[in-house]
């Protein structure tokens, strides 16, 4: 009787030990996969967008106007530099169509949109292999040329600070004040978005929940962006939004779990052709 009781206890301990091993294995796998992916993205940025920091920050801090074409003193159109070799990247994977960069964050990544599955890049890298951090991506409800009223980009909130984790820097009022712009490079354009607000929102799917073609709905969304109900929000006060504005929403999960999403919203203030 005593022996069988001991055997039962040992069996329970073994079962828990196995469960422990499985859970630990999952965590280790995710950490290793995440670390490898971070290294890969650094290499990709080094290979395809090596001068992005210098190029963007030297010429991109003074937005002119939408659809702008800056004129030189001779009257010729001055084209902006494009530091991203998107042609080569999209030759490897046609799903890659733009690049996102935000100063003083780790956000410096290619942006993809799958032609097969809207959420493919949630857990796949740009080479279409499994990757826990995935890729920064948009869904097929958004056009690839950022001409929709609202374009949403998704990225993981990685523990190592990669992907969209450093968007949470915008919850610091000083950082929010000092870092005004989000930059998007397409093959032939440089789009500059001024950060309007950063706040915690609920977990509803933005593009599936709002019909932004409706002026009233779009106006309400913009009103929400300027006056978020979230307690920990930061808003740029001197911005007014109109129905002609194009907005970019960057979405990631919250620190410490929870059902909400952390959103950083920008409005297009400069749309330059690149050489």
């Amino acid at each position: 009787m005593k022996k069988s009781k001991n055997k039962a206890i040992i069996a329970v301990i073994v079962i828990f030990a196995l469960a422990f091993a499985v859970a630990a294995g999952i965590v280790i796998f995710k950490l290793v996969n995440g670390a490898l992916a971070s290294g890969d993205y650094e290499k990709i940025a080094g290979s395809y967008a090596s001068d992005i920091t210098a190029t963007t920050e030297s010429g991109g801090s003074q937005p002119v106007s939408q659809q702008s074409s800056q004129q030189s003193s001779e009257g010729n159109t001055v084209l902006a530099d494009n530091p991203v070799n998107l042609s080569e990247l999209s030759a490897q994977n046609p799903d890659i169509y733009s690049w996102i960069y935000i100063s003083n964050t780790n956000v410096n990544y290619p942006v993809a949109q799958s032609a097969e599955d809207d959420n493919f890049y949630l857990d796949h890298d740009i080479y279409k292999g499994y990757s826990f951090p995935g890729t920064i991506y948009s869904q097929s409800c958004n056009k690839r040329d950022y001409t929709d009223r609202v374009t949403v980009l998704y990225g993981h909130n990685m523990l190592d600070g990669s992907m969209f984790a450093t968007l949470h820097y915008f919850s610091d009022p000083q950082f929010f004040e000092e870092n005004k712009y989000i930059y998007i490079y397409t093959k032939d354009r440089k789009l500059t978005y001024e950060v309007v607000s950063a706040y915690i929102y609920d977990d509803r799917h933005i593009m599936n929940s709002f019909n932004f073609l409706d002026d009233k709905v779009y106006a309400e969304w913009q009103e929400e962006a300027l006056n978020p109900r979230s307690v920990s929000s930061n808003v740029r006060k001197d911005i007014t939004l109109t129905k002609d504005d194009k907005m970019l929403v960057l979405s990631t999960c919250l620190n410490g779990g929870g059902d909400g999403r952390y959103l950083v919203q920008g409005v297009l203030v400069n749309n330059e052709q690149t050489r």
């Binding site: 999952i26 995710k30 032609a115 949630l122 523990l159 992907m163 799917h205």
Partner: peptide, 20 residues
């Protein structure tokens, strides 16, 4: 042939392995 995301909930982009 795009497999559309018609989910009312936004894609889960959290990295915290709370369950694990």
């Amino acid at each position: 042939n795009v497999k559309k995301d018609d989910n009312p909930v936004s894609p889960k982009t959290g990295a915290d392995s709370v369950a694990a």
